[in-house]
């Protein structure tokens, strides 16, 4: 499977949120790193078809995703940055609802839901109301729902927000395993989240991809040294914040 992002542009009123971004993605884990407001979420939403493009196109195996319509959506798993829920739903009901929207029904949907809840450590919370879950648990539920249809393209927007360190490690392991036979794109501004698991990293700034490559390549290009940390590379490209006088 191949996903081609071809000179994609998105404009909000007079501001260009994404400026002619191009990339070619095949199986693997892709990290999209950038500061808040860099255009990561807009780009991911265009990849998912939630937002249309103002220029360029996105092709899945050579076919425009807009023309593919439901055939493309069937391949897709998506975790929005801030996903909503119906207040009266329990964890199980929420999963079964999303499963039914993804065309999964009956015993299969229930079995898959149970396995995924177990995978994200929520097997004991099936009857808990979604609104009663903590931020981290809700995020794990979001990750579980994104995997319901065994997506060939998995798009995760800030998936580790709210997760504690142990959960983050578990999440990284899961994504590394999933990335073996599908395209996984995850956006974050937490550098260590992608450092260990991403096969390829994009640095995004002001709506543009300013640098890309494997971790080693980025370290080599950014620092001239493969032994430095990716965080240093990130700061090299995005600039280090000067500490304010009154905080020092």
């Amino acid at each position: 499977m191949e996903l081609v992002i071809d000179h994609v542009t998105k404009k909000y009123k007079n501001k260009l949120a994404v400026k002619g971004v191009s990339a070619r993605l095949t199986q693997g884990v892709y990290g999209l790193l950038g500061d808040n407001g860099a255009g990561k979420t807009t780009l991911l939403r265009m990849i998912c078809g939630v937002l249309g493009t103002d220029g360029g196109e996105i092709l899945c195996d050579g076919e425009n995703i807009v023309e593919m319509d439901d055939r493309y959506r069937e391949l897709l798993g998506y975790l929005p940055q801030d996903f909503g829920y119906y207040p009266s739903f329990t964890v199980m009901e929420f999963m079964l609802y999303i499963a039914s929207l993804k065309g999964l029904t009956g015993v299969y949907a229930r079995q898959k839901t149970k396995v995924l809840l177990q995978k994200v450590g929520l097997e004991q919370n099936g009857r808990t109301k979604v609104r009663a879950l903590s931020g981290g648990m809700r995020q794990r539920l979001g990750i579980a729902q994104s995997l319901l249809n065994d997506p060939k393209i998995l798009v995760l927007d800030e998936p580790t927000a709210g997760l504690d360190p142990r959960e983050r490690v578990r999440f990284r392991n899961m994504i590394a395993a999933l990335g073996k036979d599908r395209i996984v794109i995850l956006s974050t501004h937490i550098v260590p989240d992608v450092e260990e698991i991403a096969d390829w990293i994009f640095f995004m700034k002001d709506g543009e991809i300013i640098e890309q490559g494997t971790v080693e390549r980025l370290k080599r290009v950014g620092l001239g040294d493969e032994n430095g940390s990716l965080e240093k590379v990130y700061l090299h490209y995005f600039g280090e914040e000067e500490p304010e006088d009154d905080l020092v």
Binding site: R45, C48, G49, V50, D69, D70, R73, E74, L76, Y78, P80, D82, F83, G84, Y85, Y86, I98, L101, K102, G103, Q145, N149
Partner: peptide
């Protein structure tokens, strides 16, 4: 429920 609409719009059915 706006953000759920975002999820719903990426599933199988229009």
């Amino acid at each position: 429920h706006q953000s759920l609409l975002e999820l719903e719009s990426t599933t199988k059915y229009p």
